[in-house]
Each structure stands twice: as C-alpha cells, then as structure tokens.
Computed example of a mutant assay.
Amino acid sequence: MKIKDFTNAGLADNSVVAPSEPVAPVAMTTEKQNVTEEIEIQAENATEEVMVAPTNAIQSDTPTFDYADSKDLYKGLGKRPKRKYEKFEDIPAEVIESFKRKYGRIFSLTFQSDKFIVRTVPRDIYTQGMLNSTAELTQEDLAKEHVDSRNQRIYTRQEFFASQIVLWPEDAEWLLRENAGYAASITDEAILRSGFEIPTSEEL
C-alpha cells in the first residue's frame, strides 16, 4: 500500500514559506490581555469536554476473533487432520493419476491463498444433496416458500457438495468454515463441470 505524505504538499524540497511583510508587535492593554486569557481558558475547558465524551462513548469490550479459540466454528469436526502433502506442488504425479482412476474427471481450483483438487459431482451425490437439504424443513416452510427457507437450503447444499467433492487438502472442511465463499465457489464450478453448463444445440 502506498501512502502519500501531504505534510509539505506543494512545496519544493527545503523550501521555506516566509511572510510577505514582517508583522509588527501590537501593544496589548491589561484589560485586553485579561479578556484574551479568559477566552483561552474557556476554549481549553471546552476542548477537554469534547475530548472526554467521545472517548468514553466508543469504549468497547468486544474481543478480537481468533480461529484457534473458536469452538463454534469447528463444532463437530474433531481434530484438524495433518496434510500428507503441505503444498499442491508436493503432490506426486501418481497420486493425481490415482484420483483420476478412482473419480474420473478432476480439476484444481486456486484461490488467493489456498488450492483444492476437486472432482465433478456424480448423480448420486447431487440427488442426495438436493433431497437432504430440505429434510429438516417443515411442510409449512416448504409450502410457504419463505425466503429464509430457500436461502437456508442453498447454503446447506453448497456446504454438502463442497464437503463431498474436494479430494485435497485433507483439512478442506476446516478451510470451508474459515472462508465464507469457498463452499459456494467450489460448488458452482463443480456443478458447471458436471453437465449443468448450457449445451450447444443444432437442429438435424
């Protein structure tokens, strides 16, 4: 990040701004001096009041968030697994080939700080995700099609699909919880690569 210093903006290096004409001192009577001192005291008192009030008003006891101390974020996941291969570049070619033999088409997804190996979504996992995402909703919710209900199903499906199709890294589920957009991005890309893209058609 570049920070521009405006302290001496518009001035050449080592330049000094001098007044056009010297200012002659003005004699001040005792009465004027007393009035001036009183004004300065009032101004100082007013400044202290202004400074104290906002300071007390903005005090907050909100703690800073730390992933390591958050139990709710990782609830139900247990102990975070250690990666066999810390970086994508460390994964041997034979491991990639074994993924292909077992899962068919696979691809990599790269985010700014994390990389995933992902498979396409097979029909059985797709069906399971679409059906199970509505299992906990009441018939009333389904009938009324509340916005909250629809949104909840979308989020549930994204998390389910992402957890089922990521092949590497081993701690993918922890990353999905730490980064709000990963589940959605991974699911969207995998769905498109699983036959949901718009096909081209040609009349015969």
Results as ranks from 00 to 15, higher is better:
residue 1 M to N: 07
residue 1 M to A: 07
residue 3 I to R: 03
residue 5 D to A: 02
residue 6 F to P: 06
residue 11 L to G: 00
residue 11 L to V: 00
residue 13 D to S: 02
residue 16 V to Y: 02
residue 17 V to L: 03
residue 18 A to C: 01
residue 20 S to T: 02
residue 21 E to M: 01
residue 22 P to M: 00
residue 26 V to A: 09
residue 28 M to W: 08
residue 30 T to G: 11
residue 34 N to H: 02
residue 35 V to T: 04
residue 36 T to P: 00
residue 37 E to C: 00
residue 39 I to M: 09
residue 40 E to P: 00
residue 41 I to D: 05
residue 42 Q to H: 01
residue 43 A to W: 02
residue 43 A to H: 04
residue 45 N to W: 01
residue 46 A to L: 10
residue 46 A to K: 10
residue 49 E to H: 12
residue 50 V to D: 09
residue 51 M to E: 12
residue 54 P to L: 01
residue 55 T to K: 15
residue 57 A to R: 13
residue 58 I to D: 14
residue 59 Q to S: 14
residue 64 T to P: 13
residue 64 T to M: 14
residue 66 D to E: 11
residue 68 A to H: 09
residue 69 D to C: 11
residue 69 D to Y: 07
residue 72 D to F: 09
residue 73 L to F: 10
residue 75 K to Y: 12
residue 76 G to H: 04
residue 80 R to Y: 03
residue 81 P to R: 03
residue 83 R to Y: 01
residue 84 K to C: 04
residue 85 Y to D: 09
residue 86 E to H: 01
residue 87 K to N: 13
residue 89 E to M: 03
residue 91 I to E: 08
residue 93 A to L: 09
residue 95 V to M: 06
residue 95 V to S: 01
residue 97 E to D: 05
residue 97 E to L: 04
residue 98 S to E: 08
residue 100 K to P: 03
residue 101 R to P: 00
residue 101 R to H: 02
residue 104 G to T: 01
residue 104 G to H: 01
residue 105 R to W: 07
residue 107 F to N: 05
residue 107 F to D: 11
residue 108 S to N: 14
residue 108 S to W: 13
residue 109 L to S: 14
residue 109 L to D: 10
residue 110 T to Y: 14
residue 113 S to M: 09
residue 118 V to M: 03
residue 118 V to C: 09
residue 119 R to S: 14
residue 119 R to K: 09
residue 121 V to T: 13
residue 125 I to A: 07
residue 125 I to C: 03
residue 127 T to I: 11
residue 127 T to M: 09
residue 127 T to E: 11
residue 129 G to A: 08
residue 130 M to E: 09
residue 130 M to H: 06
residue 130 M to V: 09
residue 131 L to N: 08
residue 131 L to F: 10
residue 133 S to A: 12
residue 134 T to C: 07
residue 134 T to W: 02
residue 135 A to V: 10
residue 135 A to C: 10
residue 135 A to G: 07
residue 136 E to D: 12
residue 138 T to C: 03
residue 139 Q to N: 15
residue 140 E to H: 13
residue 141 D to G: 01
residue 142 L to D: 02
residue 144 K to L: 13
residue 145 E to I: 06
residue 147 V to I: 12
residue 147 V to H: 12
residue 147 V to S: 13
residue 148 D to Y: 06
residue 148 D to R: 04
residue 153 R to P: 00
residue 153 R to I: 00
residue 154 I to T: 13
residue 154 I to N: 07
residue 155 Y to N: 12
residue 155 Y to H: 08
residue 155 Y to W: 06
residue 155 Y to F: 06
residue 157 R to D: 05
residue 157 R to A: 05
residue 161 F to R: 12
residue 161 F to A: 08
residue 163 S to Y: 03
residue 165 I to W: 11
residue 166 V to Q: 04
residue 168 W to M: 03
residue 168 W to I: 06
residue 169 P to Q: 02
residue 171 D to H: 10
residue 172 A to K: 07
residue 173 E to P: 05
residue 174 W to E: 06
residue 178 E to G: 12
residue 180 A to I: 15
residue 180 A to H: 15
residue 182 Y to I: 08
residue 185 S to Q: 15
residue 185 S to K: 11
residue 185 S to W: 12
residue 186 I to D: 14
residue 187 T to P: 05
residue 188 D to F: 14
residue 189 E to F: 11
residue 191 I to T: 13
residue 191 I to L: 15
residue 193 R to M: 11
residue 193 R to T: 07
residue 197 E to M: 12
residue 198 I to P: 07
residue 198 I to Q: 14
residue 199 P to V: 12
residue 199 P to I: 07
residue 200 T to N: 13
